[in-house]
């Protein structure tokens, strides 16, 4: 680990290890798994009855009483993506803690890359979530606990990058970003708990009656879930590697410029 030439152990994350050999393979595997999973979710998993509506209602320009919902297929994308985004956030907080403990710049880079992955997956979760509410609950937006929590989480993650961009000193930027990553990690579950536990008479509680999933639903779901987690990990490694190359390149350019100036 660390660059022998400059003797900067701890500045760059270790790249080129088994994880990076694995990353492209995982990426391919993830593509395969998610694609097959999606196809299966359409052709194998049975259609699901939508949340029961009182009488007949018009949802999305369609008269609905109790229909077989094709929109339920969103779930096969939505949930794996949401879980991956959460895992990325956990990893970002973990590396943030490691950074504050060791003050090694590589943990800051790793935490940041995890946050980037988290942002991508959080935005995908939000997009599918909003589609879900539209077709399942008949509105584009409702301040429902899960939706609210993810919206807030998205704002915090965006705020994380705004904060990073607003600080020039790399050391200070790393510390502040790490602190924010940890706070975000703690704040998110609290947000979910509070929006869920505070009783409210205004929000409609829509629950599917008689849940449970058969094998034909669980298998595609698990396939997509593993696929998405692999995808997240592969993206993380690839991004990390490109950033390390970029950092090393910058450092080299700087050294060369210094040499030219002194010469």
């Amino acid at each position: 680990m660390g660059d022998k030439r400059t003797g900067n152990a701890g500045i760059y994350p270790a790249v080129g290890t088994w994880a990076d050999t694995l990353a492209p393979i995982l990426l391919l595997l993830a593509l395969l798994l998610t694609t097959i999973g999606f196809v299966l979710s359409f052709i194998w998993a049975p259609p699901v009855y939508g949340a029961s509506v009182n009488g007949v209602e018009v949802i999305g320009g369609q008269v609905v009483s109790n229909v077989l919902l094709i929109s339920q297929k969103i779930f096969y994308f939505h949930m794996p993506v949401a879980i991956t985004s959460f895992l990325a956030l956990v990893a970002a907080a973990f590396f943030a803690v490691r950074f504050l403990m060791t003050r090694e710049a590589r943990f800051d880079t790793m935490s940041r890359v995890c946050m980037e992955i988290a942002l991508v997956f959080v935005i995908m979760t939000m997009a599918t979530g909003v589609m879900w509410t539209r077709f399942e609950w008949g509105v584009w937006w409702t301040w429902e606990p899960r939706l609210t929590t993810y919206f807030i989480l998205m704002l915090i993650v965006i705020g994380y990058f705004i904060l990073r961009n607003a600080i020039d000193d790399p050391e200070r930027r790393a510390v502040y970003a790490a602190v924010l990553a940890i706070i975000a990690f703690v704040d998110t579950p609290i947000c979910f708990m509070i929006t869920r536990l505070v009783p409210s008479s205004i929000h409609p509680v829509v629950l599917r009656q008689g849940g449970g999933m058969g094998v034909s639903m669980i298998v595609p779901l698990l396939m997509i879930m593993f696929g998405m987690v692999m995808l997240g990990f592969a993206l993380y490694r690839l991004r990390l590697r490109s950033i390390v190359l970029e950092q090393k390149c910058d450092a080299l350019t700087e050294t060369l410029e210094d040499q030219r100036e002194s010469a």
Binding site: L155, I156, D187, C191, V198
Partner: peptide, 13 residues
């Protein structure tokens, strides 16, 4: 940008 989302749960309660 940082304050409002982080304070959201508290304000909600």
């Amino acid at each position: 940008v940082l304050f409002v989302p982080l304070l959201f749960p508290l304000v909600y309660a």
